[in-house]
Each structure stands twice: as C-alpha cells, then as structure tokens.
Design a protein around this nucleic acid. Structure first.
Lengths: 193, 193
DNA sequence: AATAACAGACCGACCGTTCGGTCTGTCAAA
DNA sequence: TTTGACAGACCGAACGGTCGGTCTGTTATT
C-alpha cells in the first residue's frame, strides 16, 4: 500500500461513515473499524481529525468544480449546459456521498473551512457567470448582471438539493429538478417585445 | 419563575450557544453556564438533551410558519407578498438565531427530526402554493402547477440563505435577495403574447 | 411536613490523541 | 547469499479530558 492509497482508503471510509451518521458523529473509533486501518496508522497519515475533515472538504469541492468544468467545456448552448449541470448535480445527490449540507454546516462554525468554502463559491460563481454571459451573447438570456445571476443560479441549485434531500417524501425528485431549471430559464430568458 | 419561563430561558440560551458553536457542539455544561440554570434544573425541565434539541427545532419551524402566515394574511398582490416573504426571511437571517442550516443537517441523520421537517415543508409548501394560485388568479403568474412552483420558491429562498450565509464576503446580501426574488417573479410571470 | 424547583458534585462511557513497540522491505557490507 | 542496520508503515493499549446523565442535598412555598 502506498501512501496515497492508504490515505484514500481512510478518506473513502470516512465518507461512508459521514453518509450514515453525519460528519458531526464521525468518530475515530468508527473510522478505525470502517477503514481497516488502525488508530496509529490513521495518525501516521493524518496529524489530526481536523486534517481528515479538511481533506474530505477539499475532495468534495474539487469534485464539484471539476464536474462543472467538464460540462462547461462541452459544446452546446448556454441553455443546454445549464440543464446539464442541474441534472448532473441530481445524479451526484443520489450518489454515495453525504449531502454537502453537512459540510456547509461544519464550515459555518470553522474559520479555515469557511475560507475554503468562500474560495469554492468564488470559482463556482466565476464559471457560472461565464455561462450566463454566453447565454446573453447568444441572445437567449436577458442582459442581466452575470455575477448576480450566477449567484442566483447556484442558490437555486443548492436550495433544490437542500430541500429535496430534507423533504424525504420527494415523490419525484427528478421532476422537481426539471421544474426548477425550467423556472430558472424562464426567469433568465429574454422577452419577446 | 414559572415552568414555561424557565424552559424558555434554557431554550434561548441554547440558541445562543448554537449560534456561536453550532448545534453539534452544544454541550450541557455550556448550557448550564449560559442559561444560569444548573444541571439538575435543566434535567428537571427536560428529560434529555434530545428533548431540548427537539424543542429548539419546533420553536424555529413554528416561528417560520407563523411569519409566513402573517404575511399571507395581509392584503396585497401575490407579487408583493412574495417580495415581502423574501425580505422578512432576510431580516430573520440577520437575527439572533443560528442558521436553519444546522438544524437541517441535524435532521438529515435523525429520524424524528426529519419527520418534523417533512411536516414543516408540507405546510410551508401548502401556504406558498396558495400564494402562487392567487398570482395565477390575478393573471400575473403563468398557470403552472402551484405545488411544484411552491417547492421551487422555497428552494430558491432556502438556497439564497444557504449560499448567502456560507459565502461570507457577501458584499450586499440585500441586493442578492432582491435580485433573486426578481428573477423568480420573471420566471413565474405570464408572458405577453 | 410535604413537595416542587432547583443546585452542583459526581459517574461511567467515550472522545481524540499519543506513544512504545512490531512488522516488512531495502540496501550495503561481509 | 547471508546478515545486520535502518526506515517507513502500521498497530493497539493507554491517557487526559469532555460528554450526557444521575444522585443527593438544599431551599422556598404550600
């Protein structure tokens, strides 16, 4: 086992526990059981529990940004790309990881984590703003401030998943996502005069 | 001090701690210090920490619903009411309480809490759906499914605060809220043909 | 005297962290 | 080819501290 492999093994086990019991209830003893690595081994690779949390944080944020980047670099209209981003996030929500909600809650009371989160939202906003600008250039979006609009898009996206994941009945989460993105596109669109 | 007063005193102190350190780090010993009530006293009024959390949960959700109810019962167009709800929530976010974010995160891994949350979102959705129906009846909103639209409105509202509270720079949170509600109203509005 | 409403010392369980020791593999000297 | 020195990776018992919760004692009211 190389250094990187063991680290990844520990991190992945940590995500598994966090998905079940929440980040707040992630204990080192549980992590020992779930990862198959001993206490000492874990502390050989990470100098504290906080460092593990930070590593998980970075892992999730980087993954999210790279998903967005991949979508943006594809060909297609701004409208199509926006729909794609919402649908991808939908898949991610159904995936193995705990909701980002837990991470945000953690960051709310931790300075170093919230700094990372700010950096994340910054680059997220920049990327979506470019997309909005593309839509404006294509003539499909009304010429609103791309930065403000980008924040609204991100807010809606995050909100849909926050509510969707909390509101368990969720007869049809997919339909809700589609409806949200359609509402969004209506709001962004240029009106025929 | 009556029973109800002491209970409230404990709950309010708990909110104060939660706002500073998060719900996950709310300890009974801290609560003793902050509330001015001893361990024995607290456990006289609440049979466990979980019961305190549950009481806080209900407190926040009931407060939110009553704010929405008050706004809905006022006179005015659906458009005006929607703007008002967003602005009220903005004030609440600047208030003394911790972000609901923490509560949602807690509920995500606690069955009894998530049940309460589902009930909350249910009545929230019903109320907003009525508002959407009002807008449709007034002829300002396009005739979309009021229930789905209501969920989208709630999602955007929650998302705006989630992102707004996490994304600390927040040059101008008020402007962001205004922009969000405007985008929303554009999306909901009936198109001129 | 009886009881409601506390106060605060105290409890065992569990927390994150440390630390002495072990195991495996590498590599140079014999 | 064997041997011995060494290093990195890992183990798990143990530690101090904190956790939620309990217990006995006290006070004020009835």
């Amino acid at each position: 086992m190389t250094e990187a492999e063991t680290r990844q093994q520990i991190i992945l086990a940590a995500f598994k526990i966090a998905a079940e019991k929440g980040f707040a209830n992630l204990s080192m003893n549980d992590l020992v059981r779930a990862s198959g690595v001993s206490k000492g081994g874990i502390y050989w690779h990470f100098k504290s529990k906080d460092e593990i949390i930070r590593a998980m944080f970075d892992y999730v944020l980087a993954a999210q940004i790279s998903i967005v980047d991949a979508t943006l670099s594809e060909t297609g209209s701004a409208t199509e790309k926006l729909r794609r981003i919402f649908r991808l996030a939908e898949q991610a929500a159904a995936g193995q990881f705990a909701s980002p909600l837990d991470l945000y809650a953690l960051a709310a009371h931790d300075k170093t984590l919230s700094q990372r989160l700010v950096g994340y939202f910054d680059s997220y906003q920049q990327r979506i703003a470019l997309l909005v600008q593309q839509g404006i250039d294509e003539g499909t979006f009304a010429p609103h401030d791309p930065d403000l609009s980008a924040m609204n898009i991100i807010s809606l996206l995050e909100g849909v998943f926050l509510v969707g994941l909390s509101f368990t009945p969720m007869r049809d989460f997919g339909a809700q996502v589609e409806n949200a993105v359609t509402l969004l596109l209506e709001g962004l669109s240029k009106r025929e005069l």
